[in-house]
Simulated scan of single mutants.
Amino acid sequence: MQEILDCLRNLGQQLDSEIAAATGIPLADVRRRLLELSKKGGIMTCHATRFIDGQKIEGMLCRAIGPASSLNPVRASKLKNNRHG
């Protein structure tokens, strides 16, 4: 499950199919692990529909819950500043 959390923290919000492609984990396993992570409070999920080149793609949209990504220091800085005032 850590591999999925790392993927979400590094890449940001992703569809379950994108997570499967990025990690090399089969989609069915990714979906099972995402449900476990959601129950534990590690991620937020919602059902989403995207249209890519006119093709309808449905999946579970996910993002990690927790500290801001180290890849976006500006956002992290703003979050820290907003907590003080």
Rank of each mutant, 00 (worst) to 15 (best):
G41S: 05
G66T: 05
M44A: 11
G12F: 05
G59Q: 01
L11P: 01
E18K: 14
T49Y: 03
L35R: 15
M60C: 09
K40R: 14
L27I: 15
A76W: 01
G85P: 02
R33N: 09
R31A: 03
P67H: 13
S69A: 07
S70C: 05
R32M: 11
G24P: 04
G85Y: 08
L79S: 04
L61Y: 03
G42D: 10
Q2H: 12
A64S: 05
A68N: 03
R83P: 00
I65M: 09
S77Q: 08
N82Y: 10
M1T: 14
I57T: 11
I19E: 02
Q2G: 15
N72L: 10
E18V: 08
T23M: 06
A20E: 03
S70H: 07
L11V: 06
K39A: 12
G24H: 09
S17W: 10
R83T: 12
M1D: 10
A48P: 00
L79H: 05
R50A: 09
R63C: 05
A68D: 03
N82F: 08
I57G: 01
A22Y: 03
G42C: 12
C7T: 12
L35H: 11
L8D: 00
Q55F: 05
D29F: 11
D53C: 04
I4L: 09
L61Q: 06
N72Q: 13
T45S: 05
M44H: 09
H84E: 15
D6S: 11
R75G: 04
L61C: 04
F51I: 15
S38P: 00
I43F: 00
N72C: 07
A68R: 06
G54C: 06
D6R: 14
L35I: 13
A20V: 06
S77W: 11
S77M: 11
I65A: 07
S17G: 04
A68Y: 02
K80D: 08
Q13A: 11
G42P: 00
S38M: 05
M60R: 12
T23W: 02
R75Y: 13
A64Q: 03
A21R: 13
S70V: 14
R63A: 06
T49L: 10
V30F: 00
T49W: 01
A22T: 06
G85V: 08
M60N: 06
S17K: 12
C62E: 01
M1W: 08
R33V: 09
I43E: 00
L71V: 09
P26V: 11
I52F: 02
R32K: 14
V74S: 07
E36D: 13
G54T: 05
T49E: 14
G85T: 06
D29W: 03
F51T: 15
R63F: 06
G54E: 07
R50H: 07
H84S: 14
D16C: 06
T45P: 01
R9E: 10
C46W: 02
L34C: 12
L34W: 00
R33I: 10
R33H: 11
L8C: 04
S77F: 14
G85I: 09
L5N: 02
A20Q: 05
G12Y: 04
L15F: 13
Q2N: 15
G85C: 06
R31P: 01
R33P: 00
L5G: 02
Q14M: 15
S69T: 14
I52H: 04
R32D: 13
Q55I: 14
N81M: 14
